[in-house]
C-alpha cells in the first residue's frame, strides 16, 4: 500500500496549469523529498492533497482511500507555508486548539510530548507572535505531530532554521518515520539537507512529475567523477579532454566524469608531464544532479 497515490492530477488558476496531469507515488514509511523550482507546483500539490484546493481532475488516494475520507484525513498532519497559528495566542493555546480539533484524550500530555520532540518544552507560554521564525517553524511541526499522524506533509519546513535547527528537524523526521511508522512528504530547496534524510524523491517541473526514484536509485544514477588539481590546469584539461569524454573545469578543480580510477589519471598526466597536486574520487550530490536534470529538461 502507498501512503499517497496520485493519478493524472490537474489544477489550474485562471487557465494556467499549476499542476498538470501529475502522477505521484509515496510509499508507506518513506521520507519523500519533493523537489522543484519555485512555482513548479509543489505547494499546490500539497494543498490539493490536504483538501485546501479543489482539483480540476485526477485522483488522490491516501492509504488506499479517497483523500476526502474523514478517517484518513484526521491522521494527516500538515505544515504548509506557515504554522497557521493565532499570533496573539500562546504556543500552548494554539496547540491546545489543535488537540481539541483532533479530539485527543490527553491534551496536556500530547502537547508536552510534541514540544519535547521539537525541543520547545520551555516555550509553551510564549505568545506565538513573539516567537522567532525558527521557533514558528518548529511549532508548525509540533502542530502537525499532534495525535497520531500517519502522514506528514511539510512544505519547506527547514526554511529559516539555523544549522542546529536543521539538525534537530532532521533528527525529528527520521525519528517519527522509524519509531512511529509515519510517512513524510517534504518539499525543500535545501537539497543538501534533504539528501541526508530522504528515502525517495519526486522531481516536479512546470506542474508535471518528471522523475520519481528511490534514494538507492539516485545513488546508482549519481555520476562518479574524479576532481584534481595540477600545476598547469589549462594544459592538463587539454590533455584529459583528448582521453576522456566528459572533462569540466569547476572552480579550482578539473572534473573527469564517469571515471573512478585515480591512479590511472595520475599516471596518464605524469606521462604527459603534469604533476598532480591533489586528486579525489567523488559522486555528484542531489543538488548537482537536480541542476543537471533541470538544465537537460530546459534544453528539451
Amino acid at each position: 500500500m502507498n501512503a499517497i497515490e496520485i493519478r493524472n492530477l490537474s489544477k489550474s488558476f485562471r487557465g494556467m496549469y499549476a499542476v498538470d496531469n501529475l502522477n505521484m507515488t509515496v510509499p508507506v514509511g518513506s521520507i519523500y523529498g519533493f523537489i522543484g523550482e519555485n512555482g513548479s507546483g509543489k505547494s499546490t500539490t500539497e494543498k490539493l492533497i490536504c483538501g485546501h484546493l479543489v482539483p480540476d481532475g485526477g485522483e488522490i488516494k491516501l492509504f488506499g482511500r479517497d483523500y476526502t475520507d474523514a478517517g484518513v484525513r484526521v491522521r494527516v498532519g500538515a505544515l504548509i507555508e506557515n504554522a497557521g497559528c493565532f499570533p496573539h495566542s500562546s504556543v500552548y493555546q494554539n496547540l491546545r486548539m489543535q488537540t481539541i480539533n483532533l479530539g485527543l484524550k490527553n491534551p496536556d500530555e500530547e502537547i508536552r510530548r510534541v514540544l519535547e520532540i521539537v525541543r520547545m518544552q520551555d516555550s509553551a507560554n510564549i505568545k506565538f507572535k513573539s516567537c522567532s521564525l525558527g521557533m514558528k517553524q518548529r511549532i508548525g511541526i509540533a502542530m502537525a505531530l499532534l495525535g497520531d499522524p500517519a502522514l506528514l506533509i511539510l512544505d519547506e519546513p527547514i526554511n529559516g532554521l539555523d544549522t542546529d535547527g536543521m539538525r534537530i528537524m532532521r533528527e525529528i523526521l527520521v525519528d517519527i518515520t522509524k519509531n512511529y511508522g509515519c510517512t513524510v512528504l517534504i518539499s525543500s530547496h535545501i537539497l543538501g539537507e534533504l539528501e541526508k534524510i530522504a528515502t525517495h524523491y519526486g522531481i516536479i517541473r512546470q506542474g508535471k512529475m518528471i522523475m520519481e526514484l528511490s534514494a538507492e536509485e539516485m545513488d546508482r544514477r549519481a555520476q562518479v567523477f574524479v576532481s584534481l588539481k595540477t600545476d598547469d590546469m589549462k594544459g592538463a584539461w587539454a590533455i584529459l579532454s583528448k582521453k576522456f569524454a566528459d572533462v569540466r573545469e569547476e572552480g579550482e578543480y578539473i572534473r573527469v566524469y564517469d571515471v573512478d580510477d585515480t591512479a590511472y589519471i595520475v599516471d596518464y598526466l605524469m606521462k604527459s608531464g603534469h604533476v598532480v597536486s591533489e586528486i579525489k574520487k567523488n559522486k555528484i550530490g542531489l543538488e548537482e544532479y537536480y541542476i543537471e536534470l533541470m538544465s537537460r529538461k530546459g534544453e528539451e
Binding site: 483523500y67 476526502t68 494527516v76 507555508e81 480539533n101
Partner: peptide
C-alpha cells in the same frame, strides 16, 4: 476572518474533510 488571516483554517480543513 482570523481563521483565514492566521492560516489556522488550514489545520481545520486538513483534518476535517467535510
Amino acid at each position: 476572518g482570523h481563521d483565514y488571516k492566521s492560516g489556522y483554517v488550514k489545520q481545520l480543513f486538513t483534518t476535517h474533510a467535510k
